[in-house]
Design a protein around this nucleic acid. Sequence first.
DNA 1: GTCTATATCACGATAGAC
DNA 2: GTCTATCGTGATATAGAC
Lengths: 202, 202
Amino acid sequence: MQAEDRRVQIISRSTDLFLEQGFAGTSMSMIAKRCGITKASLYHHFNGKDELFVACVTSGYQRALDALTEIIAQADRPAGQKLAEAMTVLYDITISSSVGRMSPLIAEVSRTFPNVARSFHSEYIAPQQDLVWNLIEAGQASGEFKDLDRGLLFHMLFGPIVTLSLSREMFSTFDDLDEHFPVGHLRDGHLNVILGMLRKDR
Amino acid sequence: MQAEDRRVQIISRSTDLFLEQGFAGTSMSMIAKRCGITKASLYHHFNGKDELFVACVTSGYQRALDALTEIIAQADRPAGQKLAEAMTVLYDITISSSVGRMSPLIAEVSRTFPNVARSFHSEYIAPQQDLVWNLIEAGQASGEFKDLDRGLLFHMLFGPIVTLSLSREMFSTFDDLDEHFPVGHLRDGHLNVILGMLRKDR
DNA sequence: GTCTATATCACGATAGAC
DNA sequence: GTCTATCGTGATATAGAC
């Protein structure tokens, strides 16, 4: 297999394993086996486990951010409607995409590799918040939204989503997972609360 | 040292280590050294690493729940005021106490030991939610609060708190941590949003 | 680019003396 | 209750042939 294709495959398979078993719980042997090669071949493509993990975290950033950018860039539509679509995307990428589900993992390794947490923040969290804030400011400029503390808005907007993702990871063995944590229902109610915070009273 | 004292010491020290290094990242040797004994002595008190970890998670439950119970049981006072105090306690135990900070850890081990996640939910999360819900129902009975979907309320109430705790763990190496995540400020704004959801409109 | 073979080390856990 | 000594395993990582 070509080197680049192999790299992509390794990142994909090892991301799955890290999500399943955690960082320390995933060994290079397991990764090699999952890719159908030996450990020595694996080390030909990545110098070590740390480097591979960083590649896994980093590779998911752009795709997730692109989906958000697309919504912000759309032709003029009510900010409330854009926000509704943005929140749908945020729920999707936080709960279903690898980069969103990696938050607890990054917390796990952040003490050992503080750089991972820093890059996660500066290359993913901060740009994501900036994109959402652009949307909010557009709504304020058009008079649809009122002024609101940025930190508080993100606390109320991202907080429930990230916790929902964490809960679903944590209790993934529950057979009534969707009953305990019904994503669509919670997202709709959440959106209404956020709109209530943003919309000018009467 | 007496067996019981030693057990307590081991649980305390190993809880710190698990929080610092994760489950797989913490070895029995590290724990023994931190306690000033050898590995063999450690195994005299706990049959294995799993058992020790479960003891760490479990030992924090009751203290955290007691603090909440105290508030609910207080003499009659406006439900809004009780809720404000309950949220202060929830922020404290989720962000500062070991059991609150253990959520990402439990997510890490939940695949390998599903029982840990189940016990965490049934012995800590569910009772905590029941206590808060008692408070809400009292407010509804007195006419102070309106009806509200239980799942949505918990989504909006616990979500931001748990995520704030996770973020502070994840970015604990940031030197401007309290500037990025000002607990008191976010808690006050959060309370107002929750009260806005619960209070009857004019 | 992939392999076999191996070096080196730390892990969880145990045996048995005191 | 704590110790020294050790077993067996699996971890990261490398050497060198093809």
